Measured scan of single mutants.
Amino acid sequence: EPIEAIAKFDYVGRSARELSFKKGASLLLYHRASEDWWEGRHNGIDGLVPHQYIVVQD
């Protein structure tokens, strides 16, 4: 079951695997890939989301 998150800041992906998004964007998170990253989805694209840039919705 994906988790919803909201972007705290704009983020520009630094590689093809990283998602880019704007502050306030809604993201879906699948699972924690590491301490710093989530596997997630934004605008229909799957990729990595940096933990420091999002607020996970409970």
Rank of each mutant, 00 (worst) to 15 (best):
E1V: 04
E1T: 05
E1G: 04
P2E: 15
P2N: 15
I3Q: 09
I3M: 08
I3R: 05
I3K: 11
I3A: 05
E4T: 07
E4Q: 12
E4H: 15
E4P: 09
A5P: 00
A5C: 13
I6C: 10
I6A: 07
I6D: 02
A7R: 01
A7M: 01
A7V: 02
K8P: 01
K8V: 08
K8N: 08
K8A: 10
F9Y: 05
F9E: 14
F9N: 06
F9T: 13
F9H: 06
D10M: 06
Y11W: 04
Y11K: 02
Y11S: 03
Y11P: 00
Y11C: 03
V12E: 15
V12K: 07
V12H: 14
G13I: 02
G13C: 08
G13Y: 01
R14H: 03
A16D: 06
R17G: 11
E18Y: 11
E18N: 02
E18M: 14
L19R: 02
L19G: 01
L19Y: 00
L19P: 02
K22C: 08
K22F: 14
G24P: 02
G24T: 04
A25M: 12
A25K: 08
A25L: 02
A25P: 00
S26F: 10
S26I: 11
L27T: 02
L28I: 08
L28F: 13
L28T: 13
L28R: 11
L29M: 05
L29T: 01
L29P: 00
L29S: 00
Y30N: 08
Y30T: 14
Y30E: 07
Y30P: 01
Y30H: 06
H31F: 05
H31C: 08
R32Q: 09
R32T: 03
R32L: 06
A33I: 04
A33K: 10
A33F: 10
A33M: 10
A33R: 14
A33W: 06
S34M: 09
E35W: 06
D36M: 15
D36C: 07
D36R: 09
W37Q: 07
W37P: 01
W38R: 01
W38P: 00
E39H: 11
E39Y: 07
G40A: 14
G40S: 05
R41E: 03
R41V: 15
R41G: 06
R41L: 09
H42F: 14
H42Y: 10
H42L: 07
H42V: 13
H42N: 06
H42P: 00
H42A: 12
N43Y: 03
G44W: 04
G44Q: 13
G44C: 10
I45Y: 03
I45S: 13
I45D: 03
I45E: 11
D46R: 06
D46L: 10
D46V: 09
D46H: 09
G47V: 02
L48W: 14
L48C: 04
V49A: 06
V49F: 03
V49D: 02
P50R: 13
P50Q: 05
H51V: 06
H51R: 12
H51L: 03
Q52H: 14
Q52M: 14
Q52T: 09
Q52N: 09
Q52D: 15
Q52G: 13
Y53W: 13
Y53N: 15
Y53D: 08
I54S: 02
I54L: 12
